[in-house]
Computed example of a mutant assay.
Amino acid sequence: MIKTNAMRILDKMKVEYEVITYDVKDNKIDGIAVSKKIGREEKYVYKTLVTKGISKSIYIFLIPVTEEIDFKKVAKITNEKTIEMLDLSELQKYTGYIRGGCSPLGMKKQYKTFIHNSALELQTIIVSAGKIGFQIEINPNLLVDIVEGSFNDLIK
């Protein structure tokens, strides 16, 4: 079994999680496609969005795959005048991950992380394990503690 940085962190901390794999031969790696491939409702699958504020600070947002981030809300939460998606060309430089395999765990640096508060209604959520084709199912309360994050309203 392949172990990603995210999995090694959880193993070291003795945190309970489940690894879910999916086929990537068709190159469909977006969150909605992933939820279909793994046979789970979309509300359980969260995408990891990496953003940059006007201050050049990096912020991580986890939201359900069917939702859209509200940049006005997240700018207010982060005390930034404006916030935007990190350019994909910079993703690996800042996180160590590539598009489709960006986990909130095990980035090059632990950035300020926010999880949409809908996760509080769920026993587990599914996030990237840090490699395309691999997901982690984890209790959101454990995840928010590990990433030293918070639950907030982040979507439109």
Results as ranks from 00 to 15, higher is better:
33 A>K: 06
34 V>W: 11
34 V>E: 14
34 V>N: 10
34 V>T: 12
34 V>K: 02
35 S>W: 07
37 K>N: 11
39 G>T: 00
42 E>M: 09
42 E>L: 04
43 K>P: 15
44 Y>Q: 00
49 L>W: 03
49 L>C: 13
51 T>P: 15
51 T>D: 15
51 T>C: 15
51 T>F: 14
53 G>V: 06
58 I>V: 07
59 Y>R: 01
60 I>D: 04
61 F>T: 09
62 L>S: 02
63 I>F: 00
64 P>N: 05
65 V>Y: 04
65 V>R: 02
67 E>I: 02
70 D>E: 03
71 F>T: 02
72 K>S: 08
73 K>Q: 07
75 A>D: 07
76 K>M: 07
80 E>A: 03
81 K>T: 07
82 T>L: 10
86 L>V: 09
88 L>Y: 13
88 L>C: 04
88 L>S: 09
90 E>I: 05
91 L>N: 06
94 Y>T: 03
94 Y>A: 07
95 T>P: 05
97 Y>H: 06
97 Y>A: 12
97 Y>W: 09
98 I>K: 12
98 I>G: 15
100 G>L: 11
101 G>N: 01
102 C>W: 03
103 S>E: 04
103 S>I: 01
104 P>R: 00
107 M>H: 03
109 K>L: 10
109 K>C: 09
110 Q>Y: 12
111 Y>L: 10
113 T>H: 02
113 T>P: 00
115 I>M: 09
116 H>M: 11
117 N>A: 13
119 A>G: 12
120 L>R: 10
124 T>M: 05
125 I>E: 08
126 I>A: 08
128 S>W: 04
129 A>F: 07
129 A>T: 07
133 G>N: 05
134 F>G: 10
137 E>F: 02
138 I>D: 04
138 I>L: 03
140 P>W: 00
142 L>F: 05
146 I>F: 00
